[in-house]
Amino acid sequence: MVQTISLETAKDVIDAAERKAQEIENPMVITVANSEGNLIAQHRMDDAWLASVNISRNKAYTSAALEMATDELAGPSQPGESLYGLQTTDDDRIVVFGGGYPLTRDGEVVGAIGVSGGQVDQDMEVAQAGVEAFEETAAQ
């Protein structure tokens, strides 16, 4: 049986990420996807950029589909590197900059979080708050 994330858990992850976004005073769009990259829940904070709706969803999709953080793709996707052009594949859904992380349970990717709305380091910080909340929930 494929493990997944419940809507309740997704909401907890989003809440934790939103608290971090409020703390750094930057509205974000936060997405939680299942292990196949399909949407479980998405939250757009007031005044978050409209473009961040799709970007956050694609960050979650990328992390689930490739089972890795999106920032790990930045280097290998540069011109001359082995994954150059990766972001133009899979119907342009692959994101090669930070803000997406897989969510794992017992060593298995069960979902992903994607965050967009700030500078890349801010997206990563907010997404990491969601990852930490997921890990606390998974440990219980």
Rank of each mutant, 00 (worst) to 15 (best):
S116K: 02
E136S: 15
S52A: 12
E36F: 12
L7R: 10
I5L: 06
K20R: 15
Q128R: 14
P76C: 03
P102W: 01
E132C: 00
Q42F: 01
N38I: 04
F134M: 03
M124F: 04
A65T: 11
Y101A: 02
V115D: 05
A33D: 11
V13E: 00
P102Q: 01
T9Q: 14
L86P: 08
G98E: 05
D71H: 15
Q87K: 13
T137P: 01
Q119E: 15
S56I: 05
N54Q: 15
M1P: 04
Y101H: 14
E135T: 10
L103C: 07
I113C: 04
Q87N: 14
V32N: 04
I30W: 00
Q42Y: 03
G99P: 05
A33K: 01
G98S: 08
T104C: 03
T62V: 02
Q42R: 13
Q140Y: 04
H43S: 12
A129F: 09
D92W: 11
V96R: 01
E67A: 15
E135W: 02
E135K: 12
A65W: 04
Q128F: 09
A48G: 12
I40D: 00
Q42C: 07
A41F: 02
A17P: 08
A33G: 11
L39E: 11
A129W: 10
G80V: 09
G99D: 09
H43T: 08
D123H: 07
L103I: 02
G107F: 02
V53T: 15
D123G: 10
V32I: 15
T88D: 11
T137R: 11
N26W: 06
L86M: 12
P27H: 02
A129C: 08
V29H: 07
A64F: 01
T4M: 03
E136W: 01
S82L: 11
Q128P: 01
F97N: 09
M45F: 10
G75C: 05
S6D: 03
T62M: 00
A138R: 06
